[in-house]
Amino acid sequence: MYLNANNISFSYRKNKPILKNISISIPDNKVIGLMGDSGSGKSTLCKVISGYLNNYTGTITIDNELIDKTGYCPAQLIFQHPEKTMNPKWKMHKVLSESWNPPQELKDTFGLKEGWMNRWPSELSGGELQRFSILRALNPNTKFIIADEISTMLDTVTQVQIWDSLIDYCKKNKIGILAVSHDKELLEVIADNIVLFNDINKL
């Protein structure tokens, strides 16, 4: 299975395109690394692929079928700042079950402790919250993970833990990953292929 983005163009302001004719293909058994400078539009591409921005031109298909713009998007975005993606008035069990109820085994793999379920988002550290947001994105309907700088804010120990369990799970369950980062060394370790953003963005 492949996720194909074909000739994607997008602009926030008229006549000032930020993405131009971008094509990228993500296979379901690989980690594709996307590298580029800050401010170059990587995050915008992520949002387009995972359905957060709709007025783009071009097509996004999975197995040659257009992604349905309504309902659950099979390409799920994980953000850099988990604390900004959670309702501060919801306890963690509610945050997680908004998406699905993962089996205990999976919670253990990602190091989620039972005691955290009754806490508020403000009572967990950034690394702990990022584990929740990753597991939340791994709903059974998810076919692809778009990881936008998900470990930039974390210390190196947590970074290894998170990537280790995410890649392990995705390889077993045939979920493709687009790993976006400006950290070349990290992508060289985790990604099967690295794509340079400036090469595919035909501005």
Partner: peptide, 12 residues
Amino acid sequence: FELTEGHQPSYQ
């Protein structure tokens, strides 16, 4: 890129 178990708790 070595894996170490365990995670840093929060300040509370």
